[in-house]
């Protein structure tokens, strides 16, 4: 590593001290930017959640979150995020597995990865349009199922503007994201591990349980946390899909900021603070589990 050689470079003490005292200046612009446009805005929200309009400390805003409509919004947001992150991880993993280890011909891999790159970035408003045009009341799939197979999707209780519909939509970017992250991880699974396990008498199942999954575990957890945050904070798709008819937290907050619904900015702070807390918990759990499961890495 170049980094190591930097530390090992012999330098006379005075020059070294001079270098250290000035080196940090090089990243001041970046740090200033990060503080001004990432850290401070976030901290402002966090502190705002604990203040009343007069600027005094209070827990009222947080307490106000515990009203049925807001609790319900958090609950459905969490459910959608967990469901779409979990299914995204599972299906994305299977796809990556099929391509890397499942014996598919080599030419499948590159198109799948390219497409995953596209689809994982195809989010927001256009994605909502695409799913409306496909699974909406007049969508292609809805009509085909109705006209050709006599299945009335909406008659069966399906609605694109619902928990199930939104999860189905979010999977369109969640699965590819998982594929993109887990494919290199699966590539990193060395053939010798599998062979060594096999020659030591392990079955395929034992290999996966005792070797492969423990090795992949940190990646899987990390991706789950990322996918969770990814869908938890997604506004555009849901907003374009459902307008304000489905009350998930980011839409509630969106309406709040726009001033459509409530006029109490400090409730907005509390809503946003709640979002940070939840994605923060997701990531904290990830880091904690990862630290536990990665004792074997430097």
């Amino acid at each position: 590593m170049t980094d190591a050689s930097a530390a090992a470079l012999p330098a006379p003490p005075p020059a070294r001290r001079a270098r250290i005292s000035f080196a940090w200046v090089g990243i001041v612009p970046f740090l200033a930017f990060a503080v001004l446009f990432l850290i401070m805005p976030t901290l402002h929200i966090v502190t705002g959640a604990f203040r009343n309009p007069a600027g005094e400390f209070t827990l009222v805003n947080i307490a106000n979150l515990f009203q049925p409509s807001i609790i319900a919004a958090y609950w459905i947001s969490i459910r959608i995020s967990v469901a779409s992150a979990f299914l995204g991880c599972l299906i994305g993993f299977m796809l990556a597995w099929a391509v890397v280890l499942g014996g598919l011909p080599g030419w499948v891999r590159s198109p799948l990865l390219t497409f995953s790159g596209v689809a994982s970035n195809f989010a927001g408003v256009p994605l909502a349009f695409a799913f409306l045009a496909t699974f909406g009341r007049l969508g292609l799939v809805t009509l085909i199922l109705r006209d050709w197979f006599g299945i009335n999707l909406y008659g069966m209780g399906f609605n694109i503007l619902s928990f199930g519909g939104l999860t189905l939509t979010y999977l369109f970017f969640q699965i590819p994201l998982m594929v993109l992250i887990v494919t290199p991880a699966l590539d990193g699974m060395r053939r010798e591990w599998r062979e060594a396990a096999s020659i030591l008498g392990a079955t395929s199942f034992q290999y996966w349980r005792m070797v492969a999954l423990p090795i992949l575990w940190p990646t899987l957890l990390g991706t789950f946390a990322l996918l969770f945050a990814n869908s938890f904070g997604a506004v555009a798709t849901a907003y374009a899909l459902t307008g304000s008819s489905l009350s998930i937290v980011p839409i509630l907050l969106f309406a709040q900021i726009r001033g459509d619904v409530l006029q109490d900015p400090h409730l907005g702070y509390a809503l946003a603070f709640g979002m940070i807390v939840i994605t923060g918990i997701a990531n904290f759990v990830y880091i904690w589990l990862r630290a536990r499961s990665e004792r074997w890495v430097k």
Binding site: E195, A196, S198, V211, I215
Partner: peptide
Amino acid sequence: LKPNQRNIGMVFQAYALFPNMT
């Protein structure tokens, strides 16, 4: 027979120790 039915020991070129185990 499959490798796991042969009762053979093998040492690989690049160690191939399971990194997640002591």
